[in-house]
């Protein structure tokens, strides 16, 4: 589904990604861990098409297309979803209104009729239950004055609504209380099918107890320096990143 080959990306002439290789197949869950500033969010942003980053080298193939050729909205319509580490506020625009605009543009892209109000509300109700989000939150201005946890939950709600093929969750677990973490992880698991894939960026092993990854990768200084299975996450939790850093320097 997704194949990243020797991806290099910089911002303001500073190289952040220094040769990423990663392949994600349908049905898989990949976890990406790594110290602060190692380039995890950068990778997520580059995949989603943020224009601030310049791809200087490498190739990304998604569903047999050159992903880097597509505009951000085209990537989204093709099923790429990014749950932001820091969701932005959009004053005066409710989540409901926002999602309706998004969904109908996606549907149009896929040659479907726009949702009428009734089907849209029905869809909303269903997905609200899935992530246990309150109606009142959805009618408020998007992310404005939301608590950290509310923002994250709202991201997962949007993911549920948009039914992406490839979801990238950038530290969606940070800021969630223990119950919320379980609910959100449950939601993500329920949305999992054999045809879609998930990349979870996290600092905590705990999330991976709920969303069990097929692979764990360690991103350090713009490269994936170690890959393994879920046991790797446990090892990292125990030992920290120093042993990996030492190894890569050596």
């Amino acid at each position: 589904m997704l194949k990243i080959e020797d991806l290099h990306a910089s911002i303001e002439d500073k190289e952040i990604l220094k040769g990423i290789n990663l392949e994600v197949k349908p049905g898989e869950v990949h976890a990406i861990m790594g110290p602060n500033g190692s380039g995890k969010s950068t990778l997520a942003s580059v995949l989603a098409g943020r224009e601030d980053y310049e791809v200087t080298k490498g190739k990304v193939t998604y569903k047999e297309q050159d992903l880097l050729d597509l505009a951000p909205e085209e990537r989204a319509r093709e099923g790429i979803f990014l749950a932001f580490q820091y969701p932005v506020e959009i004053p005066g625009v409710s989540t409901t209104n926002f999602l309706k605009t998004a969904i109908n543009q996606i549907r149009e892209h896929r040659g479907l009729e726009p949702f009428d109000a009734v089907s849209f509300l029905k869809e909303m109700k269903e997905k609200m239950k899935l992530v246990d989000i309150d109606q009142s939150l959805l009618s408020r201005a998007l992310n404005e004055g939301f608590s950290g946890g509310e923002k994250k939950r709202n991201e997962v709600f949007q993911m549920a609504m948009l039914e992406p093929t490839l979801s990238i969750l950038d530290e969606t677990d940070s800021g969630l209380d223990i119950d919320a973490l379980r609910i959100v992880a449950d939601g993500v698991n329920k949305l999992k099918t054999k045809d879609n894939a998930t990349i979870v960026v996290t600092h905590y092993q705990r999330l991976l107890e709920y969303i069990v990854p097929d692979y764990v990768h360690v991103l350090y200084n713009g490269r994936i320096v170690k890959s393994g299975t879920k046991e790797l996450a446990l090892e990292l939790e125990e030992k920290g990143y120093d042993w990996i850093k030492e190894k890569t320097i050596a």
Partner: peptide
């Protein structure tokens, strides 16, 4: 970018943001 990442084209994104800003 937040809007385009959800599949909304840039012009619609701006319209959405401006309308939100003028809502009151």
């Amino acid at each position: 970018f937040y809007c385009t990442q959800r599949g909304i084209d840039e012009e619609s994104a701006i319209a959405l943001i401006v309308n939100g800003y003028c809502k009151e």
